[in-house]
Design a protein around this nucleic acid. Sequence first.
RNA 1: GGGCGCGUAGCUCAGUUGGCUAGAGCGCUUCCCUUACAAGGAAGAUGUCACAGGUUCGAGUCCUGUCGUGCCCACCA
Length: 1041
Amino acid sequence: MASELEKVYDPKAVEAEVSQQWLQAGAFNAEPSDGREKYCIVIPPPNVTAALHLGHALNNTLQDVLVRFKRMCQFNTLWMPGTDHAGIATQTVVEKRILAEEGKRRTDFERDEFVARIQAWKDDYEQRIITQLKWMGCSCDWRRTRFTMDATCAAAVRATFFKLFSDGLIYRGKRLVNWDVATQTVLADDEVEHEEVQGNFWYLRYPLEHPADVGGLLVDHVTVATTRPETMLGDTAVAMNPSDPRAQYLVGRNVRLPIVGRLIPIIADEHVVLPKADSDDEKARFSTGFLKVTPAHDPDDYAIGQRHGLEMINVMAPDGSISDKHGWADVGADAQFLLGMDRFEAREAIVEWFRTEGLLEEVRPYVHQVGHSYRSHVPIEPYLSDQWYVAVKKPIANLESRIANLGATADSGATASVGATAASFAAVQSTDNAQLTDTHDGITYIRGTDVPVNSLAGLALMPLLDGRLKFTPDRYANNYRAWIENLRDWPISRQLWWGHQIPVWSQDCELPADVKATPTDRGPDAQVCAALDRAIGGNFGQAMGKFAVRHYLTLQAHPEKQGWIRTYICLDHDEPDAVAMIERAGWKRDCDVLDTWFSSALWPFSTLGWPEKTPDLAKYYPGDALVTAREIITLWVSRMVMMGQYCAGDIPFSDVFIHAMIQDGEGRKMSKSLGNGVDPLDVIDSHGADAMRYTLVAMTTQTQDVRMPVAEMKLPDGRVVNTSPKFDNGRNFCNKLWNAARFLMMNIQGQPAWADIHPNENLADAWILSRLNGAIRDVTLALEGYRFNEAAERLYHFTWNDFCDWYLEIAKARINAGQAAPKAILSHCLDVILRLLHPIAPFITEAIWQRLNDVASVRGPADEQAERMLVTAAWPYANGGAISEPTEKRFALLQDLVSQVRNARTQHNVPPSQKVAVIIEAPDNLAAVIAENTDLLKSLANLSEAKVQRGAVEPPANSAAIAVGGVRLYILDIIDRDAELARLTKQADLLRRGIGGIEGKLGNAGFVAKAPPAVVQKERERMAQLRADLAAVEKSLEALK
RNA sequence: GGGCGCGUAGCUCAGUUGGCUAGAGCGCUUCCCUUACAAGGAAGAUGUCACAGGUUCGAGUCCUGUCGUGCCCACCA
């Protein structure tokens, strides 16, 4: 391999090669048998809906930085990769594509056929995603790549569902759900996006059945205000606040619902807002005091309906059209014209009907928040529907003991970590948590909440409160906590084809009359079971006993048929013969699939083989850190925490790092539709993977959003791609590093052994080693504290400023002068820089490392052969003894002198090539150090001569005078009087400003008395220094006049 | 309606428990293609730290309020 590098760093030339080497060496592979302490991160599995964007690049770069850092710290490191099937999202994308390309709808296919189409899409995008991650340099153990619907994950889903089902935590409920009429599926509360909508309040008159005397006034109607007139078809009451003065006359009377003709009661309910025209409350300003109640189409109304036992009439079909087929029976002749209309058409038609009939009292414009589907973006319809739910606040019997027992029942030894953490959970439960909980009615709640400690929600919340779970930045803990405290049961069924099909079979049975027990949603009692056996003609339990599959049976009263029950069987896996048997006996499998987040919640342990007690699970669970964006703290993070404990006995990670969301230059989200999306592969093409990674890491502060101006760029191959000039920074840095390495490799041949050099005898050597070790210390601390930008910037400035701008320039001159010592220092510095920078910029550092090995395989105090590959080389540890503040201070004085001389040269228009001579006047304590480093000054400031004198020097004629840090320096034969005057005047101003500031402080009695003595002392020293320098500058100015 | 951010140089952003003459990168000005690097080097200019109060010896940093801006949550009368 040639020791001379290309002049310009070409990422293309090294990235593929380096990547190949890592994979061939198995550098990312994690082996549970490796006894070293483990470090484990699971990837937030990207959705297979689309290729990755810059947000993913950020997310995965940060994970890779942590993983590579820990790997170099010699942990047994696992980064688990994989992708998410993303139920609704993926199905929607594929449906749209097929409709656009083939004009076919989902219903034109058989289920299996359609799922196969989605599967093909998934295969394609999974491949693209993995390729993108590899190009980014992600050091995942690719052999383990999982998918949320693969066999391993599916087994975990089944096991979890069965466990929840048999613990009575999954139930079938009729609830008002967030219905997406476009995709015809239910959405969880957090999948609903609220958007501001310009709407109207329509004031509709409902005639009273009989005119009423209201405090002496004869009224024949009441007026309700609504934003959704179409729901009036399902009204089953009109409510008013009991404290409304009109209530005494009207409650109990009936109104005749227009169009429909239904007679509905006026009821009293505290929920109704009293009208008040000048109220701060917008609702009060718009209220008439009468609220139409539509239990089947509004969550508030649903609650009122529950309180008053109102009928629930659903007037819509699942597609959002008005329908009499889904619960609406009393459709009169007047309402027929509405059937089949879309809900928004119907809204207009109904308003028009009221207008024509003279029953539309008023229309007032109103801006309000309306829930929209996060997938289809159509307004959500609150819809009465049968769905599966997970009870999140229901106490789970014997939960603590089960979690504590998990360690004991698992294989000993290998599961030490699981057992230990489970034990600590139990300990926390019994001691510390006493302050965090309240017990009443036999249930222990988390204090100040309705969350039982031993519920799923409790499992998610308690680790945050007792300190086992930490967020960085910590403010995100608030989101997490508030969300869980207000958590409602989790609807987990989705009316989709793409996903884990719900493993429940159901059948309706008529119960013989002799069964007296009222079946509940818990498991059946013996009497009911016997009856059930008779109903199906056989012994169900015995029949199932023949199979290896576990089953769990529940039943509930039939929702419609008196004397009937509905039975549900859940199987823990699909054993074909057992399935065939129960299906022959009349049970049908539920068509729905599980919410995507159900399988995501299991990701930290499903990927390791749970529920099997695998070596992987024993070694790598629980993991250490999770890196994600704030938008899924609730949807995903909290559910992993709850299911991690419920299933695998411990929280899945202790640290959650939340990074920023990347926006474009105008602060907008990046998206395909806006055309401002950026593909990481395009950035890799335009700037290189390391440049992209460096810039992303340097941007990662504690802020919640970062802006990334997007610009088009033409690549050498002619393609025009979206990228960002922000990545120039990273590219320039890589190029700088490359060239520093290039210079080194051309110059370090014949480097002496470390034992033969004496860094302490040379200020520059001691200085760069002090700076180097300071950088090691700071970068290590920054990475451990998730302060990514600090690590990046510290390395940038150490490498560029300290190492390249100063040390390397000094070394050049010394090497030219025949000194060998700098060669050893240079190779050691580069060695450490490469190690420190590797997690952030893995490709270029690995490439340089291997080339450096060819030139100088031993470098640094350890006097050992450097590791063959950087990816698994050891992380450097700071040598505190090398860090010296006095050394850095002395060197800083030389830097100041050089800068000031350069400045004076520029001001006086001295050509760069022209050497000048100087005389330096230094106090005793500085004279020696300056005298020892005159060569340094001469080379850096381009001096022909530098004489150092102790004590006062008479300022030479025609000289420029410099005063810095108590040292006086005169540049001889500089004759531009105006330039010198201007320079010194400015210098004096600057010094006076500094002195003025300090005088203000020291002149303040309070400061001297109350500030810490060290601070006062420091100010006094600075004051003396500045005053001395100012005196010198003033004297020089005087001499000019 | 509730919660959480942000507002510092023309732009994008740092400023760790209050202790600077307020920083970085890009951009800008002048000079330099000096045998590592022009994706570079040297020197330089640029700020009422949104606004108003308060706490303090001392505020970009802490507190209160105002304005602007963004995100999240919330049952759409």
